[in-house]
Structure formats: structure tokens, C-alpha cells
């Protein structure tokens, strides 16, 4: 019974990870991709837990979900705001 439920859990986890990765690579909106990346990091931590590697899951939780998300959001702000003497060709695109 226990192994059956763990197997179903693993299958659902892997399928949702593949689905999220598909949308993450296919989207054109960069902010949506950042949010999808944060959710992917969460599911990746769950996958490490299921692979019986809780230490890697701890690192993934701290880095993937906690630190790269804010770093990407900060980088997104820098991308949308041109520097002082610099003109961007695609500066009219709005999120």
C-alpha cells in the first residue's frame, strides 16, 4: 500500500515538473518565466526529497526557491530600465 502511494506521488510529481518546464521554456513573458522557475524549484526540492537526498533538497530550497527568485526579479528591473546615457531599441515593450 505504501509503495503504491509513493509511486503515484512520484508519477504526479514528475509529470507536473515536465509540464512546468515545458511552459517555462515556451513562454515569451519573462516575468511569467521567473514565477514558473520559482515553482519549478519548489517541485525540484520535492523531487530531491523523494530521491532520498534531503541535503540536496535543503540546498535546492535555499537556492532555487529562495535566492534565485529575488535575484531574477532584481535583474528584471534592471533589464526594463535603460542606463543613463543609453538608448534601447526595444524600450517600448511593456510588461
Amino acid at each position: 500500500m505504501s509503495y503504491f502511494i509513493f509511486t503515484i506521488f512520484d508519477i504526479v510529481l514528475v509529470l507536473s515538473m515536465v509540464w512546468i518546464a515545458w511552459h517555462l521554456l515556451g513562454t515569451e513573458d519573462i516575468f511569467k518565466a521567473v514565477v514558473l522557475f520559482i515553482s519549478f524549484g519548489l517541485l525540484m526540492a520535492l523531487a530531491w526529497v523523494r530521491m532520498r537526498a534531503p541535503d540536496v533538497a535543503l540546498a535546492e530550497a535555499a537556492l532555487g526557491a529562495g535566492l534565485t527568485g529575488p535575484l531574477f526579479l532584481s535583474a528584471l528591473r534592471r533589464m526594463n530600465r535603460p542606463r543613463k546615457g543609453e538608448r534601447r531599441l526595444d524600450s517600448d515593450e511593456k510588461r
Binding site: 519548489l42 526540492a45 534531503p54 530550497a61 535555499a62 526557491a65 529562495g66 529575488p70 526579479l73 532584481s74
Partner: peptide
């Protein structure tokens, strides 16, 4: 050990929204 991972998640969840 999974309680510690949940603790790290709970600590760092606020960081993303604040940023």
C-alpha cells in the same frame, strides 16, 4: 530532516514577495 527543509522554505518564502 524534512522539517528543516520546510523551515528553510518558510523562512525564504517572504523574501521573493518582498523583492
Amino acid at each position: 530532516v524534512l522539517l528543516d527543509i520546510a523551515l528553510v522554505f518558510a523562512l525564504l518564502a517572504a523574501l521573493t514577495t518582498m523583492t
